[in-house]
Write a protein that binds this DNA or RNA. Structure first.
Lengths: 193, 193
DNA sequence: GTAATTATTTAACAAATGTTAAATGATTAT
DNA sequence: ATAATCATTTAACATTTGTTAAATAATTAC
């Protein structure tokens, strides 16, 4: 059985909706496992995102090109779903690029399989809704942190909530994520210790 | 028939999923229309949000108390859905407060009716997912604007995208929404003209 | 193992935004 | 109509963050 391999994914899913063995297996059967080397891309600019990934190992980052520069908009923690959502939803070319910060193992589901699951098992549609709800709430939390908190506070909170991220992810990405420049982050780190 | 009254709502919904007359009427039948006077609340602090509102007239704002001060986190444009989502999803007391900036007419759906719709008509579940997806994308756009844009740029873009909002909503709420102080907004407005 | 590349820090100065306080304008209640 | 309240602006100064440039540290490729 593959439940051991997919342990983290199953655990994640079960937090939202309870599935029967059959329902779960239907999903696991259409998963493709891919390994990405550091800096390899999961979604390229201009490409239509037709897959969604669960990060079983490693970190992904979502970035886009702004004024010729890469700006990291998001860093996915372990064991979360990631895709270039605007592209995935509307099937338009993606301006977001997703690439591996470290070597990654991804559990990948193709959009057409997902759409089938949605059609055949309404519970999966519910799961889709619930997971997006959670992503939305998290995104709002971030908006809220930009509105009320200083860069220093945002950094300190990230340090508490995802210490492993700060250990493993280059600071330039962390700085982008926090909405400040690398040098400002460096200054701020000194004052925080 | 009530389709005239609910014209904007129907138009909004039809952008996401196509419903039959019956499916649409099932939903419209459980709508409660409420009028809020300026400053009246739709969700109170500590209350469990069990309703979702479509803003047919007027603006709502979502705010919370931080350090004894009201901080406006969001201003809902006309013809959108609003609720205190973390509370609505998880049925926990809301830290977010929702109140009317101007006199409002809201089309309100109770959570239990919504849950019934989800159960009886899978298409509504799809609608729920699609609308949250859209809200998520919008929320991400905002995160992105905090990361890459100056307050001045954020203001200018708001001016272009929602000129009516800047006309109708007190600037202190706009300032919060943009993540800056009222005085900074004022200064910035002078330099923008 | 050494050179090349990439990551991080440091520092001086510039620009943006916050803070405090007050003045002016607009709206609302009586 | 007038006073009271609320909204917006202004200004001086403080703090935070950005910018440019360089130094140091760590990692990677050969």
């Amino acid at each position: 059985m593959h439940s051991e391999k997919f342990k983290n994914l199953i655990k994640f899913i079960s937090r939202f909706v309870e599935f029967t063995e059959l329902e779960m297996r239907t999903m696991l059967d259409c998963i493709e496992i891919i390994q990405l080397k550091k800096n390899e891309k999961f979604v390229n600019e201009g490409e239509i995102a037709n897959r969604i990934a669960f990060t079983n190992k490693g970190y992904l980052r979502v970035y886009y090109i702004f004024d010729g520069e890469e700006i990291t908009r998001d860093i996915t923690p372990l064991n979360t779903f990631a895709t270039a959502l605007p592209s995935f939803i509307s099937q338009i070319p993606s301006y977001e690029i997703i690439s591996a910060i470290s070597d990654c193992e991804l559990f990948v589901i193709h959009k057409k399989n997902l759409d089938n699951m949605y059609l055949n098992f309404p519970k999966w549609e519910r799961f889709g809704r619930r997971i997006i709800e959670e992503m939305f709430v998290e995104s709002q939390r971030r908006v809220y942190s930009f509105i009320t908190e200083s860069a220093e506070t945002r950094y300190k909170k990230l340090l508490i909530q995802h210490p492993e991220m700060i250990r493993d992810v280059p600071l330039k990405y962390i700085a982008d994520y926090l909405g400040i420049k690398l040098q400002s982050l460096s200054r701020l780190r000194k004052s925080v210790e």
